[in-house]
Computed example of a mutant assay.
Amino acid sequence: MRFRLAFLAAVLFAPFPALAQTPGLERVLSATTLFLSDGGGYDLALLVDNLDDGADLYVYLGLERNALVAGAKPSLVKKNAAWAGSMAGTRPSLAVNDKGSLLVKSENDSIGRDRWSQTLTVVRRNGALVVAGLTYTARDTLDPNAGGSCDLNFLSGKGTRNGKKLEIKAQTIPLADWSDEKLPKECKF
């Protein structure tokens, strides 16, 4: 755990020429290390403010300690991976769940009456980064009967909507193809 924290601190705070040359990395909103690769090394995910109400996701796979200094390129750059506002309650973040999957979180919990939160669960399958799941909640601050929640596992085809079990078509959704405009009907409230 200490090495993981030291690695993350070194990535974020050391003057890496490779990071300085990659557009937008000076606007890191969130970062985490994790283990998505089979070949060893650390994997690094960065969420970067794109200055256009969004955040871009940079994923580096199989990094050794000095890989970024040597000019490692991201394995994936997903533009607009998360919505990003400029105030508390609207900032996206990254996390790792207890199974080692990457969580890409975004929310609006401070602006207007329509509040929502979204978490994408990202895993690596057959060498590709895929959206394995989606957890989404919505509420209306003026109408307590509006809104709802869904939790979908795209790989298994199982999920819930407002606490009731449901089945969806099992599918593999490449992270590169994910778009918030394609929010499943089970998660529209």
Results as ranks from 00 to 15, higher is better:
Ser179Val: 05
Gly62Thr: 15
Arg65Val: 05
Pro144Asn: 12
Pro74Lys: 11
Ala10Arg: 15
Asp114Cys: 06
Leu68Arg: 02
Asn162Pro: 06
Leu166Trp: 04
Asp43Cys: 12
Trp178Gly: 09
Asp151Ile: 02
Arg2Glu: 07
Leu152Val: 09
Pro23Leu: 08
Phe7Thr: 12
Lys165Leu: 03
Leu103Thr: 05
Ala20Glu: 13
Gly147Asn: 08
Gly41Gln: 03
Gly41Glu: 04
Thr137Trp: 15
Gln21Met: 07
Asn80Ser: 15
Asp109Asn: 15
Ala18Tyr: 01
Leu183Asn: 10
Lys99Arg: 15
Thr141Arg: 15
Val59Tyr: 05
Gln118Pro: 00
Tyr136Ser: 06
Gly163Thr: 03
Ala45Gln: 12
Val28Ser: 11
Tyr58Pro: 05
Met87Arg: 14
Gly159Cys: 05
Ser110His: 03
Ala18Ser: 15
Leu134Ser: 10
Ala10Gln: 12
Arg115Asp: 06
Leu134Asn: 09
Gly62Phe: 05
Leu183Trp: 07
Ser75Cys: 01
Thr172Trp: 00
Arg113Val: 08
Ser117Phe: 12
Cys150Tyr: 12
Asp53Thr: 01
Ala14Arg: 03
Lys99Cys: 00
Glu167Pro: 04
Asp38Ala: 14
Arg125Tyr: 07
Arg4Gln: 15
Lys164Leu: 10
Asp52Gln: 06
Thr141Ile: 09
Ala9Ile: 00
Tyr136Trp: 13
Phe154Met: 07
Ala55Arg: 09
Ile111Cys: 00
Leu76Met: 13
Leu47Ile: 03
Ala31Gln: 09
Glu186Lys: 08
Glu26Arg: 14
Ser93Leu: 14
Asp98Trp: 01
Lys105His: 15
Ala72Thr: 10
Leu51Arg: 12
Gly41Ala: 02
Glu64Tyr: 02
Ala88Trp: 04
Ala146Glu: 12
Thr119Cys: 02
Asp177Lys: 13
Val104Ser: 01
Thr137Gly: 13
Leu8Trp: 03
Leu155Phe: 03
Leu120Tyr: 01
Asn145Phe: 08
Leu63Arg: 02
Leu19Arg: 14
Lys73Ala: 15
Ala146Val: 04
Ser179Phe: 06
Pro15Tyr: 00
Lys78Trp: 01
Cys150Leu: 09
Leu25Glu: 10
Leu166Lys: 04
Leu142Trp: 11
Lys99Leu: 12
Ala81Tyr: 03
Leu120Trp: 04
Gly147Gln: 08
Asp151Thr: 05
Ser110Thr: 00
Ala132Trp: 12
Arg124Tyr: 04
Tyr136Gly: 04
Val77Gln: 07
Thr137Asn: 13
Leu129Thr: 05
Ala10His: 14
Gly112Thr: 05
Asn145His: 06
Arg91Asn: 04
Gly39Lys: 14
Lys188Cys: 00
Lys78Phe: 01
Asn162Cys: 07
Gly39Pro: 00
Pro184Leu: 09
Asp43Thr: 14
Lys182Leu: 11
Thr90Pro: 00
Glu186Pro: 06
Gly40Ala: 09
Gly112Met: 04
Met87Lys: 14
Val104Arg: 00
Leu76Gln: 11
Ile168Val: 15
Pro17Cys: 01
